[in-house]
Amino acid sequence: NKFNKELQWATWEILNLPNLNEEQVKAFIDSLKDDPSQSANLLAEAKKLNDAQA
């Protein structure tokens, strides 16, 4: 289903952001699991944090 694909993509993207630490990655992944419908928003937040920590 649509959410599953978005969830998988967002998870992969977050796991490959170079500037997030392990705790941050885990928090984002946990949030994705809690509410897959928010995957696009969570991914945007993760990318923002990644850029801020570059």
Rank of each mutant, 00 (worst) to 15 (best):
N1R: 00
N1K: 01
N1Y: 00
N1Q: 04
K2F: 10
K2D: 15
K2L: 14
K2I: 12
F3Y: 10
F3E: 13
N4Y: 11
N4W: 15
N4F: 07
N4R: 03
N4Q: 09
N4A: 03
K5R: 04
K5L: 05
K5M: 06
K5Y: 12
K5W: 11
K5P: 15
E6A: 03
E6W: 11
E6I: 05
E6F: 12
L7W: 12
L7N: 04
L7G: 06
L7V: 14
L7P: 03
L7F: 10
Q8V: 08
Q8D: 04
Q8F: 06
Q8T: 07
Q8G: 04
Q8K: 11
Q8L: 10
Q8S: 04
W9Y: 14
W9P: 02
W9I: 14
W9L: 15
W9D: 09
W9F: 12
W9M: 15
A10K: 03
A10V: 14
A10R: 02
A10Q: 04
A10T: 10
A10M: 07
T11W: 05
T11L: 13
T11A: 06
T11N: 05
T11K: 09
T11V: 09
T11R: 07
T11Q: 09
W12I: 07
W12H: 15
W12A: 15
W12Q: 15
W12F: 09
E13M: 07
E13K: 06
E13Y: 07
E13P: 02
E13G: 04
E13Q: 13
I14W: 02
I14H: 01
I14Y: 01
I14P: 01
I14G: 01
L15H: 11
L15P: 02
L15V: 09
L15W: 06
L15A: 05
L15R: 07
L15T: 15
N16L: 10
N16G: 06
N16S: 11
N16E: 05
N16H: 13
N16I: 07
N16R: 10
L17P: 00
L17S: 02
L17I: 01
L17V: 00
L17M: 14
L17T: 01
L17A: 01
P18I: 09
P18G: 07
P18L: 07
P18W: 04
P18H: 09
P18N: 06
P18D: 06
P18E: 08
N19R: 04
N19H: 11
N19K: 03
N19I: 01
L20N: 00
L20I: 05
L20V: 02
L20P: 00
N21I: 08
N21W: 06
N21R: 13
N21T: 12
N21V: 09
N21S: 13
N21P: 02
N21H: 13
E22I: 10
E22A: 13
E23A: 14
E23P: 05
E23W: 14
E23K: 09
E23Q: 14
E23D: 13
E23H: 11
Q24W: 02
Q24L: 04
Q24D: 03
Q24F: 01
V25Y: 06
V25A: 12
V25K: 15
V25L: 12
V25S: 08
V25W: 03
V25D: 00
V25H: 07
K26P: 00
K26F: 07
K26A: 09
K26Q: 09
K26V: 08
K26T: 08
K26N: 05
K26H: 12
A27D: 07
A27S: 07
A27N: 13
A27F: 04
A27L: 10
A27Y: 14
A27V: 10
F28K: 00
F28I: 05
F28D: 00
I29F: 05
I29S: 03
I29V: 13
I29R: 03
I29E: 02
I29Y: 03
I29M: 08
D30V: 12
D30P: 00
D30N: 12
D30S: 10
S31M: 12
S31F: 12
S31N: 11
S31Q: 11
S31W: 08
S31G: 10
S31R: 14
L32E: 00
L32T: 02
L32V: 05
K33I: 06
K33N: 15
K33P: 02
K33Y: 14
K33H: 14
K33E: 10
K33M: 12
D34N: 13
D34A: 13
D34G: 14
D34Q: 14
D34T: 13
D35Q: 12
D35I: 04
D35P: 01
D35K: 06
D35S: 07
D35T: 08
D35V: 05
D35Y: 08
D35N: 07
P36V: 06
P36H: 03
P36D: 03
P36Y: 04
P36K: 03
S37A: 12
S37M: 08
S37I: 04
S37E: 07
S37W: 07
S37R: 07
S37F: 08
S37G: 08
Q38V: 05
Q38M: 10
Q38G: 10
Q38N: 13
Q38F: 04
Q38P: 01
Q38W: 04
Q38K: 14
S39K: 11
S39F: 15
S39A: 14
S39M: 15
A40L: 14
A40W: 10
A40V: 13
A40G: 14
A40I: 08
A40H: 10
N41Y: 15
N41T: 14
N41P: 06
N41R: 07
N41L: 08
N41S: 12
N41H: 12
N41F: 14
N41A: 13
L42I: 15
L42P: 01
L42V: 15
L42T: 10
L42K: 06
L42F: 09
L43D: 01
L43I: 13
L43Q: 03
L43Y: 06
L43T: 05
L43N: 01
L43W: 04
L43S: 03
L43R: 04
A44S: 14
A44Q: 10
A44P: 01
A44T: 13
A44V: 12
E45W: 05
E45S: 07
E45T: 09
E45P: 00
E45K: 08
E45A: 12
A46D: 00
A46N: 00
A46S: 02
A46E: 00
A46V: 02
A46R: 00
K47N: 08
K47H: 10
K47P: 00
K47Q: 13
K47S: 07
K47T: 10
K48R: 10
K48N: 13
K48A: 04
K48G: 04
K48T: 09
K48P: 01
L49G: 00
L49V: 15
L49S: 03
L49F: 05
L49Y: 05
L49K: 06
N50L: 01
N50W: 01
N50P: 00
N50T: 01
N50Y: 01
N50E: 01
N50A: 04
D51H: 10
D51N: 12
D51Y: 09
D51R: 08
D51M: 10
A52K: 07
A52H: 13
A52R: 12
A52S: 13
A52G: 08
A52M: 08
Q53M: 06
Q53A: 05
Q53R: 02
Q53T: 05
A54F: 10
A54Q: 12
A54R: 02
A54P: 07
A54T: 13
A54S: 11
A54K: 04
A54M: 10
